[in-house]
Design a protein around this nucleic acid. Structure first.
Length: 422
RNA sequence: GGAGAGGUGGCCGAGUGGUCGAAGGCACCCGCUUGCUAAGCGGCUUCUCGUCGAAAGACGGGACGGGAGUUCGAAUCUCCCCCUCUCCGCCA
């Protein structure tokens, strides 16, 4: 949620933000709607003020033993007309909210303006991919040869675009999850959470998946619950409707969860292998911070995620997403991509976003400022990391000419072997 | 699934239908004091929305799990829903 004050005092900033993002939206209608609802609110408040006055008088008189029939009648009539007006008011508020919830966050000043990936800015890392001295097999071929993925049977038991890891493949997947969790809890100061992966609609609204991405989520038929699309949802909603103490901030959480996405509309792209699947594993980082320290914590989060890629010694690059490429709740987003030499592609393994106060306003997450008053916290999250693509990167980058897969040093103690194959 | 108890401020916890936005405590913040790992004394602080204002603020509305109702007036009475706890049953 954007700040409503901005709608009245600085609509041009919102207009500029919409333009940067390429969002078509009639802001004037929203502004007009806001004016109408506030006028109606003021009117109701005046009536109530009058009624309270009357009630107080009635109370005083009654205690003296009088029956002020006239006053009571007037108050009764007032209550009736208030009720009518309040019904209309509710309708106005509902319409207004339906408009406001579609307003995206204001992009940070450093975000490059553009509509597609070509406008994203290289930040650091490998500019050009490494050139292996032999023809690296794409992961689906080497994994089939080594019998560590079984995509045919995954389809049989779940459907297309699901993954079944097998034998050393399953072990590698599990090793990655454990390695990421250990890294962030022991080296970077995050508290581990193991949350439920079914979430009610309020939570999805709070983080901003609803309304925009509703069709991309799996919904339960008999219960008002959605399968979590990312641990960002449970972790950021942990403190929904709370007032935190400044001394408890920043809060840093890390969680492993499976993530579920329908990927509606993405068929036809990335059909081979496991780059885009309906269920995948991810270790997610979430922080709550004060506005003052928000961006410092955000940069630290980026380097925490980067540390995971570095520890695995994978070729990677960090990019700053342009305005048109960010999700609608985000103020700024970095992507970390690793290179997959078999697919000859850069794959996104982490997306690190700062929402500033956007999510906090939606989810009503505040903190008490030292001394007086409250303010909304900054929330941010980042993958640290998502496994399917990290799995791909390992299988392709650590492939040997004779068809084995070496195990990165960082994972050896989790795997107990030096390589997969023979 | 059955029975009972309960949901009040940042936290704990009082609260006869009208001076209750709410006692008391903790915590916080601000003073003062004290020579020793902190304590004592005094004071302050609920949140939210609207109107006016450059601001400080002033005035007003609302909020005691959520919703509806009774009433001139509801934290307090009635109904529905949600959640928590205890006991019983069932069970991975």
């Amino acid at each position: 949620m954007i700040e409503l004050k901005m709608l009245r005092e600085d609509p041009d900033t919102i207009r500029a933000a919409l333009k940067k993002r390429g969002v078509e939206l009639d802001l004037d209608t929203v502004i007009e709607m806001d004016r109408t609802r506030r006028a109606s609110m003021t009117e109701i408040q005046e009536l109530k003020s009058r009624r309270n006055e009357l009630s107080e008088k009635v109370g005083t008189l009654k205690r003296k033993g009088e029956e002020p029939e006239e006053l009571m009648k007037e108050a009764r009539l007032l209550t009736e007309s208030i009720k009518k007006k309040e019904e209309d008011q509710r309708e106005l508020e509902r319409k207004f909210e339906d408009l406001v919830k579609w307003l995206p966050n204001i992009p940070h000043d450093s975000v490059p303006v553009g509509t597609g990936p070509e406008a994203n800015r290289f930040v650091r890392g490998d500019r050009t991919p490494p050139q292996p001295e032999f023809e690296v097999l794409p992961h689906w071929e080497i994994c089939e040869a080594l019998d560590i993925l079984d995509l045919k049977r995954a389809t049989k038991i779940a459907g297309s675009r699901f993954v079944l890891y097998k034998g050393m493949g399953a072990l590698l997947e599990r090793a990655l999850i454990n390695f990421f969790l250990d890294l962030h809890t022991t080296q970077h100061g995050y508290t581990e959470i193991f949350p439920p992966v079914l979430n009610p609609v309020e939570c999805l609204y709070g983080t901003g998946q609803i309304p925009k991405l509703e069709s991309d989520m799996y919904r339960c038929r008999d219960d008002a619950l959605y399968l979590t699309p990312t641990a960002e949802v449970p972790l950021t909603n942990m403190h929904r409707e709370e007032i935190l103490l400044a001394k408890d901030l920043p809060k840093r959480y890390v969680a492993y969860t499976p993530c579920f996405r329908r990927e509606a509309g993405s068929y036809g792209k990335e059909v081979r292998g496991i780059t885009r699947v309906h269920q995948f594993n991810k270790v997610e980082l979430v922080k709550y911070a004060t506005p003052e320290e928000g961006y410092a914590e955000f940069e630290k989060m980026l380097s925490d995620a980067e540390a995971a890629v570095r520890a695995l010694e994978l070729p990677y690059r960090v990019t700053l997403l342009c305005s048109g490429d960010m999700t609608f709740a985000s103020a700024i987003t970095y992507d970390i991509e690793v290179y997959a030499p078999g697919m000859k592609e850069w794959l996104e393994v982490s997306s690190i976003s700062c929402y500033e106060q956007y999510q906090a306003r939606r989810a009503n997450i505040r903190y008490r400022k030292s001394g007086k008053g409250t303010d909304f916290v900054y929330t941010m999250n980042g993958s640290g990391l998502a496994t399917p693509r990290t799995f791909i990167a390992i299988v392709e980058n650590y492939q040997t000419k004779d068809g084995r897969i070496r195990i990165p040093d960082a994972l050896k103690r989790y795997m107990g072997v030096d390589s997969i194959g023979r």
